[in-house]
């Protein structure tokens, strides 16, 4: 098989508040034999907040990011659900509206770029499931996580709006009964925990303006996983990770119950199962101690 190669849009968080996510992405890619070309020219995706201020500017900037992936003639992979949403949403809107695409390209022409719509945009989780396959991943597991009950936390922007799902990967995820992360847990040898909050919101995007709402949602999510007898949680989204890992104090206060669980990035879980050196997975950067490795 030809070596898999993707254009990597890291997003901002992987370079700042979740360094462990960047480390584990690179470690896992190496184990899986994936070549990642980092899009160092990319700007922030706007995180759906720039979109609130200036929608057109956010389209131009995201189209510019995709244009760089197109230059490499590669699929763009994202490692953050919100980067995935904003990039895939831009692609969806431009590919379905010739006038809007022309307006955006008028701006991009000022810097010598063009958005063509030739590169697919997909989250790393779906890239490996689609292009490597769960069976192959299962074969590659050297340390099965068989002693763990693992609670998947999907993160809104990978599963909703579902219309983007159909464009981003082979088998569209059912937003009410998502399976990709559960399947990955099982492929890694772990036991997947089923709980009501696994496809719900962590509250991240309202953390500053509505702290109580945000903390309650975080608390409910961790509590749901704990009540499902989870040993730890796993998520493909660094923003969910930040909420679930660093905000346990506020979350506990909001729901009136002490909640905390180790939360792993999807890449860290996979890295453990594939036998990556633990120093390359960055568990020391977590606030809620990862006490089982």
């Amino acid at each position: 098989m030809e070596k898999l190669k993707y254009a990597l849009f890291t997003g901002c968080t992987a370079k700042q508040s979740t360094p462990e996510q960047m480390m584990s992405t690179m470690a896992v890619a190496e184990k899986l034999g994936i070549e990642l070309i980092e899009l160092t020219e990319a700007s922030c995706c706007g995180a759906s907040h720039l979109q609130d201020y200036d929608d057109f500017l956010s389209l131009v900037l995201n189209a510019r990011n995709i244009a760089y992936a197109e230059k490499h003639d590669l699929t763009m992979v994202t490692i953050c659900n919100t980067c995935q949403l904003n990039t895939a949403m831009t692609k969806h809107r431009l590919d379905n509206n010739a006038d809007l695409k022309a307006k955006v390209n008028e701006k991009l022409a000022e810097v010598g770029l063009e958005y063509k719509g030739t590169s697919k945009v997909t989250h790393f989780l779906y890239a490996i499931i689609d292009d490597i396959g769960l069976d192959k991943i299962k074969e590659m597991v050297v340390t099965p996580l068989s002693q763990f009950n693992i609670a998947p936390f999907y993160g809104c922007h990978n599963i909703r709006p579902s219309e983007l799902q159909n464009e981003s990967h082979d088998k569209a995820e059912n937003p009410y009964n998502p399976t990709s992360l559960d399947d990955l847990i099982i492929a890694c040898g772990g036991k997947n925990v089923d709980y009501d909050e696994k496809n719900k919101c962590c509250g991240f995007h309202a953390e500053l303006q509505a702290p109580k709402t945000a903390a309650t949602l975080t608390g409910n999510a961790i509590a749901g996983a704990m009540d499902g007898n989870a040993d730890w949680m796993v998520t493909p989204c660094p923003l969910c990770h930040l909420k679930l890992d660093t905000q346990t104090h506020h979350a506990s206060e909001a729901i009136g119950r002490e909640v905390a669980l180790p939360v792993l990035h999807m890449q860290q879980m996979l890295g453990l199962a594939l036998g990556c050196d633990q120093s390359t997975l960055g568990m020391k950067h977590h606030l809620t101690k990862v006490d089982f490795v």
Binding site: Q16, S17, P19, L57, R64, V111
Partner: peptide, 25 residues
């Protein structure tokens, strides 16, 4: 190690393009 000070941030390459687009768009 989860907070990068302002001077430690790796800026985007071709930042001039981004700045030009922010201004014009």
């Amino acid at each position: 190690g989860k907070i990068v000070p302002p001077w430690g941030i790796t800026k985007s390459q071709n930042l001039d393009e981004i700045q030009k687009l922010v201004k014009s768009s």
